[in-house]
Each structure stands twice: as C-alpha cells, then as structure tokens.
Write a protein that binds this DNA or RNA. Structure first.
Lengths: 135, 135
DNA sequence: ATATAATCCATCTATTTAATAGATTATAAG
DNA sequence: CTTATAATCTATTAAATAGATGGATTATAT
C-alpha cells in the first residue's frame, strides 16, 4: 500500500497541476485545499523541490510552483521517491536491487520469475501515467 | 515490498511442496532447510494451518504437511494473509476496501482509475500462479 | 525596517516488523 | 502408564518506520 506521505504528495501535485498560472502557491493554501497536515506537507514539498519537480520562492508573494509540466511527472517516480521500491522483492527491483539469499547461490530464487512479471506490468502503467492523468 | 514473514511463508510452502510424500515434516527441518528462524516459523505455520493450507500432528512422528495441493495454493492468498492488501490504495482494494477522503464525496479520487488498473494486472498474475510455480 | 513565507532543526508517539524465551499440551511407543 | 517427542500457547522485546508537530531561522518583497 502507498503511505500517507505518498498520497499527500499526489494530492499536492494534483492541486498545483490544476492551477492555470505558474504563480507560487502558499504551503498553507495547498495544505488546506489538498487536505494535508501543513507541517507534514512542508517536508514533502521540500523533497519535491530537491528532485527538481517543484521550485519555491520565499517571502511575500512566495510559495511553491511546478517546475515541470504535470504530464511530464510520472506516477512511478513519485512513488519511488516517497514509497520506495515498486517491485515486490529487492531481487527484482530495478532501482533498489539487492540479491536475496537464494538468488546469491544459483540462477535466482523461485519467486524471481513471477515477481519480475508483476514488476513489468506495474511499471508499464505507472511509468506511462502522469500527474496530469490523476487531475 | 513483501515482508520477511511473507517471504518465509513462501519458502516454507515451497519446501513442503517439494516433498514427494505427505508425511509430516518437523518445524526444525523446515526452519533449517528453508532458512527461516525457527521460532518465527512456528507462528507462520500456525497461521497457514488456521486457513486450512496446512495440517499438523503433535508428538513423535509429528510435524506439518500440505493439506491442499501446491498447485491449488495461489500466491495472491499467501500475500494477502501475511502481507495485507495487494492493491496500492484502500479505495481500490477488493478484500480490504475503504473509501478515501476524496472517494467519499464524489465519483472517486484521481488515483482510483490508475490504481484499479495496477490492481487488475497484478492480480491477474498472482491469482493464477501457485506455490507449484515457484518450486 | 517590517511583514511574509519558506526552511531548518529537533523531537515525539504509535504502530509494525522481526525475533526470542519458556511453559504447556497432545501423541506415539515401550 | 511413563517417557520422549514435537506442536502450541503466552509473553516479551528490540528496532525500525510512519505520521506528525513546535519553534527558531533565513530569504524576500514592499
């Protein structure tokens, strides 16, 4: 399941994506409108800024705004950022790969095949859907 | 990601599925061969017994054995038992459904559509693969 | 200089995960 | 009917993670 944090990130991005201008939006406005605890939201927005999805401005007239277009932000990257690996096992993860005990000595563990399949079909959706699609 | 407990359950079931007879197998043997902490394994086997996948015998000559054939135990049911919901959001879960804030007032949240898709393709694999397939 | 708003730092509770220790009950076999 | 065996029950514990908040600090527009 996706963590609250991940869901909050989606709500915030969704709200920002709905704005017709790219003018900065207050954290407090996002918190209120997207229904996310303000303090918690702060850390989320900061993370999104770090990876270049958002930018911010301090002081009067400040706030957060999208740096990339909403159709260019995939659901997969947001989930990876806030929820961790998308794969069900480390040994089939593309971005967080680690061999399991059985994988180490042989041609992969029993679950390897199935879980790779699951990963592929999941990624096929999540890499091709964007924030635009959830607005 | 699947929890250790879930992975242990798969290893234990896999080991039991490999036996050619249906004679009881000692917890300690399963623990050793499947590489699972014995005490932890006890609770896992007990759970598997409760839902009718395994049965056990106490005393000398006792142990655990499969009650259903390995090809009739789906990966999905084991994951649900030990890992919880397979869906990424409560509002698209078939077995653990709960509406989210946005779902309550309207025709579903933005993520609903995509996450239903993900659930469907995932379940399509996990409901149709069995313990037999991971041996 | 001042009000504004993001940023930083620190802490906190509850829950979940993973695991272990020891007592108890059921069973087979002599 | 006693003994060894092996599952079952009760309980506790350490560590990690999730979710959240309070208050001080820094940057910016006017």
């Amino acid at each position: 399941m996706l963590s609250k944090k991940t869901q909050y990130a989606f709500r915030a991005l969704s709200y920002l994506g709905k704005q017709d201008t790219k003018k900065p939006v207050l954290i407090s406005e996002i918190a209120r409108e997207a229904n996310v605890p303000k303090k918690f939201l702060e850390t989320i927005l900061l993370d999104l800024k770090k990876i270049g999805i958002l930018n911010s401005k301090m002081g009067k007239g400040g706030g957060y705004y999208l740096l990339r277009n909403s159709e260019e932000i995939t659901l997969a990257e947001i989930i990876r950022m806030f929820n961790g690996p998308i794969a069900l096992l480390p040994c089939v993860s593309l971005n967080y790969y680690e061999p399991c005990d059985e994988c180490k000595n042989g041609s992969g563990c029993g679950l390897n095949g199935v879980m790779s399949e699951v990963r592929d079909v999941t990624l096929n959706i999540l890499e091709n859907k964007s924030v635009r699609d959830i607005i």
